[in-house]
Design a protein around this nucleic acid. Structure first.
Lengths: 124, 124
DNA sequence: TAAACAGTTGAGCAATCGTTCAACTGTTTG
DNA sequence: CAAACAGTTGAACGATTGCTCAACTGTTTA
């Protein structure tokens, strides 16, 4: 056991918690709004339907009916999810006649997914 | 309207969808297991309690009781979430006496959060 | 060995989520 | 203008989620 580990144990071997450590971590914690915004953002990626929509749009701009046909979802379900994606600034839309075409709005999407793929490929 | 846009519209102005586009997007879609694994991974970040735990552990290795005190959660609630984080290989644990110390297990965590922060800072 | 502490676990509950369904808006075309 | 099509929306539903509570395991110490 090295010094760092010994130090940590001293700080939690007592009562219910060690005030010093707790205070330090508390002070360093970002504002509750920040963590809430972050988790809300990741919630968008935390659904397989939305993930599949993002992959499809990564391929090419698509209208809702093609999107729903490609993914085997109803237009309504797709539309509900697109609304969610739009609210989070991940897709952009443009109307052209009867159709509304959606596309990826943010280059961060690819980066984030890439890191996730890396992580998943390492955990076996 | 440029050529690319005209091309897209031709493909969806017809019946219920345009088979060619749908077929192409379908063919390019990753396996359903892949998108499910990805969204499952992001689900982990999609909760503010887990996000706060990750931020705390990013600061330093912590035992469950200090973690729960720092975040104002019950030990039980923290433990449930740690179980989830452990299952996704995002935290590692080591027992030392009565305490079990948790720490971040993956360098991808910081990268992913960093990109999310960037994204959020741009959308105003 | 018994008491005290650290942490885990499973059942149960309230809240949230994603889908379906039906009704709606908006655009094009006969 | 009416019919047809593309897409949106809100209510309602079943499923999932995160927490609480209580009972449990495992470690230390008196």
């Amino acid at each position: 056991m090295n010094d760092k580990e010994k130090d940590l144990e001293m700080q939690c071997g007592c009562e219910h918690e060690h005030p010093e450590v707790v205070r330090e971590v508390r002070a360093a914690m970002p504002d509750e709004n920040v963590t809430a915004d972050l988790s809300d953002f990741f919630k968008v990626f935390g659904d397989s339907s939305r993930m599949r929509i993002l992959f499809a749009l990564d391929r090419r701009e698509l209208c809702v009916c093609d999107l729903s046909a490609a993914l085997g979802m109803t237009k309504s379900a797709v539309s509900h999810q697109l609304r969610f994606l739009r609210a989070n600034h991940l897709v952009a839309s443009r109307r052209s006649g009867k159709n509304i075409f959606y596309s990826l709005a943010d280059e961060h999407v690819r980066d984030i997914i890439e890191i996730a793929v890396e992580h998943l490929s390492e955990e076996d």
